[in-house]
Design a protein around this nucleic acid. Structure first.
Lengths: 144, 144, 144, 144
DNA sequence: GTGGTCTAGACCACA
DNA sequence: GTGGTCTAGACCACG
């Protein structure tokens, strides 16, 4: 019925942080959006099946389902029944703007919190430059 | 117990961001914790009364009550019925460590997300230095 | 997270004594703590749903919610929205100590009060051995 | 105006446990009642002045005032303005009954809680006999 | 005038 | 069908 050749599944890697308080489905939505908006995922790229992801991440399939549904509503994904879930085609201009907006908004919140914690910009820059990628181990960071 | 002399109410300033999705009570808890851990609030400092804060922030007194209760369970606040709510006495040593831990943890999350968005460290540093304090106006930022 | 299979609800039985002056939520917290610390409730055991308990005990769901929340802040319970409330995983070593501490503390208070009432240890032992389980009926003891 | 010779102040000793959750005024009422009902305080005995007690216990004079008021309402104390506060004259029969009732009620609650904590009567008796009077130090026990 | 307790109810988020 | 969030309001306990 649908003769499209399934493209190779993207090597999208998800990570869940249970200790962050952010709902799982929101974390996943964020990560897909971030990947799209930053260009790591492109139109036509295929995402893992719900079943596969639920096994990998050890979370309820309903949760993944919700993620894909919402992303489809937002126009970011397109589901082809029986074939898989793909990144839809979108204007890239919009993405660039959204990317900037997003970065700015996150940066703003982050700087405000660092301010609350008494970290000055200058000090912050130093911290960032020093920051080592040593597996952060906040506790529950499941990487796949 | 015999600290009858009510200390001047701290000039703690709270801000609520309704658009962030983070519950009000959690935002407030965070802000008190940040103020304590960074030294802006000290043992014995008095917090605003529940009623006063609820008027200022235009939210339900029960929400503030929940904040103060949770902070008391965590040992950060001490409540004196009929007198007010105060920062409890705690080892300050621990706070320094907790401050660093908190900064590190937030920094880690932030850098990870910036990475997802394709922002390199070098570029990030530039963004931070450029960042203007223009009232962020994400939409609903109530400042007091 | 992947503990989707809801365990059988524990057969935890609660009792409320309205005449004691102790707030309902505190009585319930005590009873859960006692059950955990004495080993009747174990890691992973599921507690009754808020709604079920509120019907059984004929008290407001918010009161139960407060109980579960406070126990979660203390690290005794773990909540899985949409799934239920469970005893969290904790070092069992600590529990044995805490059990002894708790027993000792209660015993101390009790003996002090009995002393105030002029009851000598020897007499007390006799009273305990004589004590009949005749439904204490202090007035409002709701058993379930 | 009142030519009564003030009797020597009773050597009543109060202790407050801030960590018990029981309101201060209630602890004090209890202790006076216990002393009366068990015969340590007798008709005509004089209690400390409000001012003296508030200094000794380092608590608000209003709290002591409330204690004495409530005990007067219950007919246990009698205030002689300008002279002091005294144990009033009461039928001793009633006291004996109340003493037994009180002991029984406390015993019942205590045994129920020990039951919850998994302590059998036999074990409990042993614990009581072993119990050492080593200054319990639950944390905040202010003895005078 | 403090905060505490409990109820009621509406609406939402999650799995 | 779970629990979470927030509001509203009544009444009480405390100092």
């Amino acid at each position: 019925m649908n003769s499209k050749i399934s493209q190779a599944v993207s090597d999208m890697r998800f990570s869940l942080d249970e200790s962050s308080g952010v709902p799982l489905y929101r974390q996943l939505i964020e990560q897909v959006e971030n990947a799209v908006v930053s260009g790591r995922l492109k139109s036509g790229d295929r995402l893992p099946t719900i079943r596969a992801l639920s096994v990998e991440l050890k979370i309820n399939p309903n949760t993944i389902s919700k993620v894909y549904n919402e992303l489809e509503i937002r126009g970011i994904l397109k589901t082809q029944v029986g074939n898989g879930t793909f990144i839809s085609e979108k204007t890239l201009e919009a993405d660039k703007d959204r990317l900037e907006m997003k970065i700015n908004e996150r940066l703003g919140r982050f700087l405000r919190e660092m301010g609350e914690l008494g970290v000055e910009k200058q000090e912050l820059v130093k911290l960032i430059e020093e920051f080592k990628e040593r597996e952060q181990e906040t506790g529950n960071n499941k990487e796949l």
